[in-house]
Simulated scan of single mutants.
Amino acid sequence: MPDTRAAFTVDPNRGPSDPLFRFGVIADPQYAAIPPNRELNRYYAKSLGKLNEAIETFNAAELQFVVTLGDIIDRDFASYDDILPLYSRLRHPQFFLLGNHDFAVAAQHLPAIAARVGLERTYYDFAGGGYRFILLDGNEVSLFAPPEGDSRRAIAADHLEALTAAGAANAQRWNGALSDAQFAWLDQTISAAEQAGERIIVMNHYPVYPANAHNLWDSERVADRLTRSRHVVAYFNGHNHAGNYGALGDIHFVNFKGMVDTPDSNTYAIVEIFEDRIAIHGFGREESRVLPLARG
């Protein structure tokens, strides 16, 4: 069922040059109370201060919601006890996606991850301002998120084996895929949004385009479904901390940079939606972009 917590309408009193609405984006805080990995340029404990800074910026802006694109923590179930209270300072509705590192916990905690961050479902959708937001769970079929003995782990092993045999760059144990049931839900949700005349923004922890080592294992079937809809305008994700951008037809694929990287520079964004464009205002290392929207 759609999540209605963030349902909103466009302000009828907005000026002609004002956006329809705005929202905040965070990718990969990947917090843990551990020493940095300087080889990977990851400073896990510093993400608390960076998140505080982002929340202060968001609270000073008029936003409809804030979304975190996965990897809230780096490891250890207790890490949630440190970082989740910071989110309670947000004055806006907040939404979480889960990433691969969110499941780097002791096996007995795996079934509790979604509830720990307040999710009834790990993939869901909501609407507002003439848009349908579709939030996917790229961990559903993986070697780390399903509990031990779950049949999805065997399906994941088959995915990885086939990709490895094909020499695919994304044949990595730290990637995952959608289940067939979730893919069918994605297809149905896109069709329902089309019938409602809504534009669509899809979000996931994992990229699907351009091709790189971080992509969802079933990135090709997901990208193909998105490009068959004239209503899908953008796909937002994290996971690849370096960031990335690509376009397929009229769809913009934006990979936001990882907050956990570097000892002292931050990265997050405020996204403004206009009738004819998406404006991404990057803070710190995040790039600012203006993405044109196709008419119709």
Rank of each mutant, 00 (worst) to 15 (best):
N100Y: 00
H92T: 14
E39Y: 12
G128I: 14
N41C: 12
S47K: 01
I72E: 02
T68E: 13
L119N: 09
L63A: 10
Q94C: 14
E39W: 10
F126R: 12
G129Y: 05
F133R: 12
S47T: 12
A61Y: 07
V66Q: 13
L48G: 02
T57S: 13
P93V: 12
Y131C: 11
K46V: 11
N52C: 02
L48Q: 01
F126I: 14
P93K: 11
A112G: 05
L63K: 07
L48C: 01
G129T: 12
P111F: 04
I55A: 08
D76G: 04
A106S: 15
R91W: 08
F103R: 03
L69P: 06
L69R: 08
K46P: 00
L119H: 08
H109Y: 14
F103H: 03
A145E: 07
H109C: 11
A127C: 10
D74N: 15
F96K: 01
D82Q: 07
F103G: 07
E120F: 07
D125L: 14
Y87D: 06
D76P: 03
L135W: 02
Y123V: 06
G138N: 05
D81W: 03
Y123G: 08
R132D: 04
Q108T: 13
H101P: 01
D137P: 06
I72P: 01
D81Y: 01
I55E: 10
L110R: 10
T122S: 15
R42K: 15
F95D: 04
Y80S: 02
T57G: 11
S142I: 00
Q108L: 12
D76I: 07
E120M: 11
S47G: 01
F95Q: 09
A112I: 04
L90N: 10
A61H: 13
A114E: 09
Q108V: 13
A114T: 09
V117A: 00
I83V: 05
Q64E: 15
L97C: 05
D76C: 07
N59W: 08
L51K: 01
S47R: 03
N41A: 14
V66P: 13
A115S: 15
A54P: 04
F144N: 13
F126M: 11
P93L: 12
S79G: 01
L110M: 04
T68S: 14
L48W: 00
R75V: 08
A115Q: 15
A107W: 09
G99R: 02
L40H: 15
N52W: 00
L63E: 10
R89V: 08
F144K: 10
A45T: 07
E56P: 04
G99C: 03
F96Q: 05
F65T: 10
